[in-house]
Amino acid sequence: MTPSLALNLALALLLLGMAGWAVLVRSTQAAVIGFMVFGLLLTLAWARLDGLDVALTEAAIGGGLTGFLLLGAAVRLRSVEHRATLQAPGLATRILAALAAGSVTLLLAFAVLTLPSPAPSLAPAVAENIAMTQVGNPVTAVLLAFRALDTLLETLVLVLAMLGIWSLADDRVWGGRPGFAIAHDASGILHYAARILVPIGVVIGGYIFWIGADDPGGKFQGATLLAAMWLLLVLAGLRDAPRVSSQALRLWVVLGPLVFISVGLLGSWLAGSFLGYPQGYAKLMIVTVELALLPSLTLILGLLIMGAPKREIGR
């Protein structure tokens, strides 16, 4: 057994162990913490699979933000934990569920083992065309040139999810601020950490964003870090959560999708195809889209965590 295989095997077993813990353990909080560790291990797995972009995204969003979101919910729902687990299904359901899950696993394992060799790949097609996009990172080229439509739609998914969360507000507090937990202790340590870390986070977030054109990184990872900095500010009580009725907030939120669509239309005019880039201007247009997306994604990711408006608009 080579060291590399041993490492992979250990990683796979740890992943399964942590996932098993997250699924099977009794306490919800323990399960969520297990899931966060699972997310960290997954990041390592991505690194082993040579997906550094994915590893960064997984660490930032898959493990970090999702974990934070679930942990917050688990804490809030502590009082009903006992009642919710009372209606546990009977043995018959468990056996049926295990059978269903087991057969899906077997089906997939079979599929994995019968995948064709050599594997089909679009890597050659990407390599052939990447020069025209003027970006160095193939993943960025796919996200913002070859399959730019998916990325545009993805930003719309985020906008819709945000609207969906806002729609859960009580009518009386519509337009108000999300009821995100706030510590108003001005001499507290969280306060202190936010004041020191946030500016540093801004520089690092900007760097991760910008490096994405040629190296692993990009707007989603950068935006996640910036969103985390924003959440830190709000959590520490240095800034209040925004009013969802705020015109400025909405402008920043829709800026990214709007610029994306406009650049797409510009392409259909200049390059003869929607989301097409005229010769020599690809990078300029891609950078324009990414720059516009950065603040929008930062705000939306933060707002997704903050939840529905809860507090009335103070006058």
């Binding site: 004041r195 020191i196 946030v198 801004v202 900007g206 910008w210």
Partner: peptide, 21 residues
């Protein structure tokens, strides 16, 4: 262009830092 983006990020960070501290 790398320096330009860097300048933007650094200015933003300085501004945030001056506001916070």
């Amino acid at each position: 262009y790398d320096l330009l983006i860097g300048l933007l990020a650094v200015l933003a960070a300085t501004w945030v830092s001056l506001r916070l501290l």
